[in-house]
């Protein structure tokens, strides 16, 4: 119905019940309904990657998903990943390497980088560049981001050894 539809989902582990308009996309639901403004909106047509979040463990563009499609899903945003400590080392590497300037792409970039590191613990620079190739950054020129991801991968590999 055009009328709001009930949706229940987990957001950063917290059960959420909401009535949403069918046309509301997940990015706007997170930002406007739940006030989780760390998920950024840069293009609203699925190109820039700033709105990247995790749904059921997989990264997605939240502007290309309706909130109603997230029914029954577990959604994780930058706020949740920060509070859980899951990406604390990656964030520290970004800080140390100045891998962000304006910071607008950063939440999406971190979530995408973490996705790579979960799948491929020791990616080379080309693999890092490839995995991040759908996330726009207009400030850094990308090299510092690649450095930070590479450094995090090395540190994690050392700790795992």
């Amino acid at each position: 119905m055009i009328a709001p539809i009930p949706v229940s989902l987990l957001v950063n582990g917290e059960p959420i019940e909401a009535l949403v308009a069918p046309r509301l996309n997940l990015a706007d639901f997170l930002r406007e309904t739940l006030k989780l403004t760390g998920t950024h909106v840069g293009c609203e047509h699925g190109v820039c990657g700033a709105c990247t979040v995790r749904v059921d463990g997989e990264i997605v563009r939240s502007c290309l998903l309706l909130a109603v499609q997230a029914q029954g899903s577990s959604v994780e945003t930058i706020e949740g990943l920060s509070d859980s400590g899951e990406i604390a080392d990656l964030q520290a590497a970004f800080r140390a390497r100045n891998a962000l300037q304006c910071g607008y792409c950063t939440p999406g970039m971190l979530i995408t980088a973490q996705d790579l590191l979960r799948q491929s613990p020791t990616p080379d620079r080309a693999a890092i560049r490839e995995h991040l190739s759908g996330n726009y950054c207009r400030c850094t020129g990308y090299q510092a981001i690649v450095d930070a991801v590479e450094a995090t991968a090395k540190t994690r590999a050392e700790q795992a050894a």
Binding site: T37, Q91, F94, R95, G103, L110
Partner: peptide
């Protein structure tokens, strides 16, 4: 030295 207050942006807690 790292820029102050970067954590705000790294955690999605900036105020744009």
């Amino acid at each position: 030295v790292p820029r102050p207050n970067l954590d705000r942006l790294l955690q999605g807690r900036g105020q744009y």
